[in-house]
Amino acid sequence: WIARINAAVRAYGLNYSTFINGLKKAGIELDRKILADMAVRDPQAFEQVVNKVKEALQV
């Protein structure tokens, strides 16, 4: 799951650890299995999560 998430978030200019930190700051409580599945099956929803994380990180 970690490898999938890392590959997906790198397309948005983040790395895995920064993304996970941003999830916590944004108050998003999705587990890694769901995030990895979302990255593959629903990229639009995953992009929305990434955008919320970037807002929380102020990137």
Rank of each mutant, 00 (worst) to 15 (best):
W1D: 15
W1N: 14
W1M: 15
I2C: 04
I2D: 02
A3H: 05
A3Q: 13
R4N: 06
R4Q: 14
R4K: 14
I5G: 00
I5R: 00
I5T: 01
N6E: 15
A7P: 01
A7Y: 07
A7I: 11
A7R: 14
A8L: 05
A8W: 04
A8P: 00
A8S: 04
V9D: 00
V9R: 00
V9P: 00
R10V: 10
R10I: 07
A11T: 11
A11G: 08
A11W: 04
A11K: 14
Y12A: 03
G13W: 02
G13P: 00
G13E: 04
L14C: 03
L14F: 07
N15W: 05
Y16Q: 02
Y16D: 02
S17T: 06
S17Q: 12
S17R: 15
S17H: 10
S17C: 15
T18A: 09
T18D: 05
T18N: 08
F19E: 00
F19L: 03
I20L: 06
I20Y: 06
I20A: 11
I20M: 15
N21H: 13
N21Q: 15
G22K: 01
L23Q: 02
L23F: 05
K24A: 08
K25G: 07
K25F: 09
K25D: 06
K25P: 05
A26D: 01
A26G: 07
G27E: 05
I28S: 04
I28P: 02
E29S: 12
E29A: 14
L30S: 07
L30A: 09
D31I: 08
D31F: 11
K33N: 07
K33G: 09
K33I: 12
I34E: 11
L35D: 01
L35E: 00
A36Y: 15
A36N: 02
A36C: 05
D37P: 03
D37E: 11
D37S: 06
D37M: 11
D37G: 08
D37F: 13
D37Y: 15
A39F: 07
A39W: 07
V40W: 13
V40R: 07
R41A: 13
D42P: 02
D42W: 09
P43L: 06
P43V: 07
P43H: 07
P43W: 06
P43T: 06
P43I: 09
Q44E: 08
Q44M: 12
A45Y: 10
A45S: 11
A45M: 12
F46L: 03
F46S: 00
F46M: 03
E47R: 11
E47V: 08
E47W: 04
E47G: 09
Q48N: 11
V49N: 03
V50R: 01
N51H: 13
K52E: 13
K52S: 10
K52L: 10
K52G: 05
V53D: 00
V53C: 08
E55Y: 12
E55M: 11
E55F: 09
A56L: 05
A56G: 07
A56T: 10
L57D: 04
L57M: 11
Q58Y: 10
Q58T: 09
Q58A: 12
V59P: 15
V59I: 09
V59R: 05
